[in-house]
């Protein structure tokens, strides 16, 4: 517990609307994630407390935490049966889809936020359906994206609920999967009172490839010709080296 407290990076978000409102103080167990060759996912702990500035009464509060990975454009394809076999058809383009999304809450956003707040903040699955794409079957494709990414751990919908202690202290866990996209992961902690978000604490988790992993990936995409030639010599070296070693070992 002392370790966790030590790890807390106290940041006070100044609320612009009123001075006497409650605030949120939050922290992350780690702000940097390094993807190396043995990376197999990582757990991030998010914690903090509600700073009560309103001394007259304790307003019932809820917490919603969102973690959003870098946005990418996707092509979603549906398989159809043609000549007896299953073949890809109908591509759908999804623009700016988060590569990772985690939503954790003390209560369902639909229960604790007003409809206007939900429409404005796009918390939860709402944000995936904001596109005005009218292509037939587009929303099925968006649903398929949510389904597939939920299965592989890229989209998490309240898998590990928030624990709220004494109406003030809270902590939550986000399990980042192995197949992370490089970039800044926006972490938002929302304080909900009286059906609206009164304040939000925002921080970023930096996800970076490092070492061999980074070098191979960058070279393959930035210097593909060099990378191709390099791969051949690397393969020759390892093939030749391993068989030489093996023969010597047998003698």
């Amino acid at each position: 517990m002392i370790r966790i407290i030590n790890l807390i990076l106290f940041t006070i978000v100044i609320n612009s609307t009123a001075q006497a409102n409650d605030l949120i103080v939050g922290g992350l167990s780690s702000k940097n994630i390094s993807i190396n060759t043995t990376f197999s996912g990582s757990d991030i702990f998010i914690f903090g407390s509600i700073k009560r500035n309103n001394n007259k009464e304790i307003i019932p509060s809820d917490i919603i935490i969102e973690v959003l990975g870098p946005k990418t454009n996707l092509t979603v394809r549906k398989k159809k049966k043609m000549f007896g076999i299953w073949v890809n058809s109908d591509p759908y383009k999804i623009i700016d889809s988060p590569s990772f999304y985690s939503l954790i809450y003390t209560d369902e956003p639909e229960n604790i936020l007003s409809d206007t707040q939900l429409a404005k903040t796009l918390i939860g699955k709402e944000q995936f359906f904001r596109s005005k794409n009218l292509q037939e079957g587009y929303f099925d494709a968006v649903n398929a994206n949510i389904r597939i990414k939920s299965k592989d751990g890229s989209y998490l919908f309240n898998n590990d609920p928030i624990t709220l202690k004494g109406e003030t202290l809270f902590s939550a866990r986000v399990s980042l999967p192995a197949n992370l996209t490089e970039g800044d992961y926006e972490t938002k902690i929302h304080l909900v009172q009286n059906n609206r978000i009164v304040t939000s604490y925002i921080d970023f988790i930096k996800v970076r490839k490092i070492g061999v992993e980074k070098w191979l990936y960058n070279t393959a995409h930035e210097e593909p010709l060099f990378y191709g030639i390099f791969s051949i010599f690397l393969a020759l070296f390892f093939g030749w080296g391993a068989s030489t070693l093996f023969r010597r070992f047998q003698k």
Binding site: N73, T75, N145
Partner: peptide, 12 residues
């Protein structure tokens, strides 16, 4: 197939 859809990330 269990899943009719497949996703591909567009190269940026």
């Amino acid at each position: 197939p269990d899943e009719y859809y497949s996703i591909m990330v567009d190269i940026q």
